[in-house]
Nucleic acid binder design. Sequence first.
DNA 1: AAGTAGACTTACCAAGAAGTAAGATTAGAG
DNA 2: CTCTAATCTTACTTCTTGGTAAGTCTACTT
Lengths: 215, 215
Amino acid sequence: MTDKRRRRLPRSVREQEIIDAALHVFSKRGYHAAVVDEIAELAGISKPMVYLYLGSKEGLFVACVRRESERLVAAFREAAQAGDSPERRLWAGLSAFFAFVAEHRGSWVVLHRQSPGQGEAIAEELAAARRSVMAEVTGLVRDGITEGGGAVQLGDQDADFVAHALVGAADSLTDWMELHPEQAPGGVTLRLMNMVWVGMRNVLAGEVWAPPHDE
Amino acid sequence: MTDKRRRRLPRSVREQEIIDAALHVFSKRGYHAAVVDEIAELAGISKPMVYLYLGSKEGLFVACVRRESERLVAAFREAAQAGDSPERRLWAGLSAFFAFVAEHRGSWVVLHRQSPGQGEAIAEELAAARRSVMAEVTGLVRDGITEGGGAVQLGDQDADFVAHALVGAADSLTDWMELHPEQAPGGVTLRLMNMVWVGMRNVLAGEVWAPPHDE
DNA sequence: AAGTAGACTTACCAAGAAGTAAGATTAGAG
DNA sequence: CTCTAATCTTACTTCTTGGTAAGTCTACTT
């Protein structure tokens, strides 16, 4: 770590350090249980600085969400554009996702594990962040669907459905990864692709699953 | 609704009404942002009654988690045992899950959408509740895997993996359902089964998805 | 050396919310 | 009818915490 003992820092740097600290505390405690004093202390600074730079506890949280959301989307998008086929792009995107979450666990927790109803501005910011993540995944899935367009015809609603399922599965697998630290992120991606993509491919090819007949 | 205007009620009844109110408020606001006065008011009662019957805010939350967790597991288990093949049982279980969440949205929110780190007792209770839900799903998935044991051999770790992915997908699809109210829970189950089960079936049959070669 | 702007702190306030003491009210038993 | 036990309330106390007023300190300019 860099030497940050009692040294004055320019605003642009200090702001980022405050956001780092806030991310840590928010992810550990959740928005309401987080205490601004603790964030300030972790940032090596006193509370009024936080308010001077970020305005309010809400502003602090919003700053975290905005920054980490952009980072995550950037990582995902960059990985996903470097592939020629839809399935490669999806694979690359998911790999990037799991790698990102494994390395920046707090970011994902702040983005997707907050209790509902923490205020208007926060709810809107979180919704926007989640929409932007979802939009990336939906785009890839839609490409995959329309490319492999076989016997069954699927539409945008289906892409949205699959994207939701994928993101949810990935989120939950985040917990699974914590229970199995020996599993590398790459392996998790591989398993998930096997589960979902093979299914999607075959469903598109016409192999539908039939519900049992109700008596 | 029953007439609950200014009527004295026996403890056993009032307790349940308090838990009903608490569930509503906790699910809307999250644990910390929830205020005991609001819970009391919604239950048509004053605050000291809540403390007399449930002990503390934590006790209140734990009571919610315990009751709703048991309800959900009961609904899932009952539906799942009424089927002869693993895939029917899984289908029935998922159907029951989506029906339950559609009807008792608050229960699921309280069980799976709370911020982390709200205290030792709460964390333990939530972990236990989630384990019990996950255990049900894992059991069904394991049955499905061992029954269809084809070319590929999968173990308990894989069942756990699939169960996590399934629960996460189902959780996220809960949000999707709110965006598409016209979709019946049964249809959601069907789509999810098509996506996951067809994939699992074919993976078990040996159709693995190959990761693209890194250059 | 003096001045200035920006980084930073101590010490405080006000509001909100968990939890409680002390007692009032009512349903039902005898 | 009376007595008792259970249900229920008003009116607090206490502590936490978001937010701020008022100023101090230091690096840099001229």
